[in-house]
Design a protein around this nucleic acid. Structure first.
Lengths: 206, 206
DNA sequence: ATCCCGATGTGACATAGTGTCATGTTGTGT
DNA sequence: ACACAACATGACACTATGTCACATCGGGAT
């Protein structure tokens, strides 16, 4: 979190600061962004930066929060538009994000954040399971799994199902790591999710 | 990917290099790890490092791949142990990961990788939706959603369901960003996943 | 055995970035 | 008009990165 000093700043100085930061974080992802560039753009001395923020990450994640707040507002608007249909709303949101992806897109803070995040996720734990669809790993798994448990047991469905399970499991693994208070709690939660995946949200018991 | 020079190295030199890297990446997460420490531990000159690798990331992600290969082998063993029951296997895997979490745990490469990843994911897109369970955002969404669509429409179930949907959607959004060849393809895939979430993997049609 | 040459090893160096700190400046309450 | 805390400033110490000119190795040709 930025220091108190930052919040005591005048509206215009704060805005100036955040704009300079957004410019730099739009240019390159967090890792390559430099404080030097930010203070140059903002026209403030080095020392002042450290009067306001702990370090580069502090500023970055504060700015990210701000941007995500805007997205939340937007998502609520979408929900209203689709009369509360979560799937519809998320589908539209998803489409909007997809538009950011192509290489010829303009650089933006959120675009860089997505690329940054996706690289990490891609390269880290999701890759552990997701790659399964591309290589022998999946086939090996398939030969072990009793496919008769799935109603649509063709390859494609199985692949997708597997990806959902892995996606949820590992995404939540990571999420839970930070939030859950105990292992028991985390495990209960996980088991519950697994049950929901099997049963779906429309079906009561299986 | 490491340079050819690295693969031409003798078994022992390569091992020495990777061990030094693992030591450093176990000490601190990628961001704070320094090449200087690695070459000091490995006892090789600076220039040699750049003869083998592009940069720090190159080495890191190569090592990560190696570690994940071990996990994959392990996961296959778990699947066999549970006669192909995916849920069971993933649950045990999940428990193992959970054991890595507590603060008093020994530092390890994978532990740091998890922390690194989770910080990024946590702070980036997953946070956009997941926070929903903690603040008014969720309640606002709940008031918009037609809860009658869910059989178990109590708050907890709805919350969990919502988290699953958001987790899958955003995890896969990120995953897809890098892998999908076209927007259409990505969207089809997404729609399919949404359908599966609604229906579950045991139920044919809804 | 000697030479040659590409592959590999080496570490000083140029460059750049971070975070700190001693000192200067501002502003507000008394 | 004074005091004192909050804030501003930029030189500096420190650390890291990636490069490059030069040294060394090793195996095939003569």
């Amino acid at each position: 979190m930025p220091k108190l000093t930052f919040f005591n700043l005048s509206e215009s100085k704060r805005k100036n600061m955040l704009e300079a930061a957004e410019k730099e974080f739009s240019r390159v992802p967090l890792f390559e962004a430099s404080i030097s560039n930010i203070i140059k753009t903002a026209g403030i001395p080095r020392g002042s930066f450290y009067q306001y923020f702990e370090n580069k990450d502090d500023l970055y994640f504060f700015l990210l929060e701000e941007k995500l707040k805007e997205r939340k507002v937007h998502f609520l608007q979408l929900l209203k538009k689709y009369n509360g249909d979560l799937i519809e709303a998320m589908t539209e949101m998803y489409q909007l994000f997809l538009k950011m992806i192509p290489d010829n897109q303009e650089r933006s803070f959120l675009r860089n954040a997505m690329i940054y995040t996706s690289n990490k996720v891609e390269n880290s734990f999701s890759g552990m399971i997701d790659e399964s669809t591309q290589n022998n790993y999946f086939n090996e798994i398939k030969s072990i799994i009793d496919t008769r448990r799935f109603h649509d047991s063709d390859d494609e469905t199985l692949k997708h199902t597997f990806k959902i399970i892995s996606a949820v499991a590992f995404h939540n693994l990571i999420e839970k790591m930070l939030k859950e208070t105990s292992e028991e709690e985390a495990l209960d939660n996980f088991t519950f999710r697994m049950k929901l995946i099997k049963q779906g949200i429309y079906k009561k018991d299986c």
